[in-house]
Computed example of a mutant assay.
Amino acid sequence: MAEQVNRTRRWVLIGGGAAVAAGFAIREYRLIPEDHGGGRISVAAAHEQAREGHILLVDIRTPREWRASGVGEGATPLDMRREDFIEVLSQLTDGNKSAPVALICARGVRSARLSNQLIAAGFANIIDVPEGMLGSAAGPGWVRAGLPVRRYNEDAG
């Protein structure tokens, strides 16, 4: 009987350890940005270039995230989950698929992945902001860098 209990405990520990390891693997996959064929830019440079009109800076996060941290000054909020995302982005660039478009998300993961999708869809000048709004291995991010944010206006976004 004691041997059966020990065997059961061993399998529970092995199964629990495997579940924890799988959870970490999934978490890490979600936090590691893909490599992409576009350029990269820091949050400070993205802010400056967007403010000067040299790039279209698009905040691809969700309305919940925009409400929580605000939207970076000079950025256009456009939820990447929208079914018409590419159509709206095309409208924002006046149909110019060579226009410089910088993408920012929370930590640079979604922006890198979406960059690849947009490049595959024919956009030729997609730039990733790998620091994101909240920081990543690439840098402190928009908020911690002290760059200006504006309150998200739900009627405008």
Rank of each mutant, 00 (worst) to 15 (best):
E48P: 02
G17T: 11
R67Q: 14
G72T: 01
F24S: 08
I126R: 08
L31M: 11
R51Y: 09
L89W: 03
E131G: 03
G17P: 07
A99N: 08
A22N: 01
D35C: 05
Y29V: 10
G39Y: 03
A45P: 03
N116C: 02
S69P: 00
L147M: 11
F24I: 06
L118P: 04
I32H: 14
R110F: 06
A2S: 15
V71K: 07
G23T: 11
P140D: 09
V58F: 01
V129Y: 04
M80N: 11
N125A: 12
V20H: 11
R10V: 08
V88P: 07
V43W: 00
R40Y: 09
A46N: 02
E73L: 09
G157N: 10
A44E: 14
L89H: 04
G132R: 06
H47C: 09
A45G: 04
V143A: 09
E52R: 06
V109E: 05
V12G: 03
G17L: 10
H36T: 00
T8F: 15
G15W: 08
E131Y: 04
I55P: 01
G122T: 08
A44M: 14
V101I: 08
R107S: 12
G132Y: 08
W66S: 02
I126Y: 05
G95W: 02
V129L: 09
C105T: 09
Q49L: 13
G16N: 11
E131F: 01
N153T: 08
L118K: 03
W66P: 05
V12K: 07
D128C: 06
V149E: 13
A138T: 00
V101H: 06
E87K: 13
A25M: 12
R7N: 14
L103P: 02
L78A: 10
R27D: 15
G17E: 15
R10G: 06
A138F: 01
L103E: 08
L134S: 13
D155F: 09
V5I: 15
A102K: 05
L147G: 05
M133V: 10
E83Q: 13
A124P: 08
R40S: 14
N125L: 05
E28S: 13
R64W: 06
L103W: 07
A18D: 12
T93H: 10
A44C: 06
E3H: 08
K97P: 02
P100I: 05
E34A: 00
E65K: 02
V129A: 10
R40W: 08
N125C: 04
G95L: 05
L78D: 08
I119N: 01
S90M: 09
R27T: 15
E73Y: 03
G157R: 10
G23N: 14
L56Y: 01
I127K: 03
W142T: 08
S98M: 12
P140A: 12
I126F: 07
E3L: 13
V71W: 04
N116T: 00
E34N: 06
N153S: 14
E3M: 12
S115C: 01
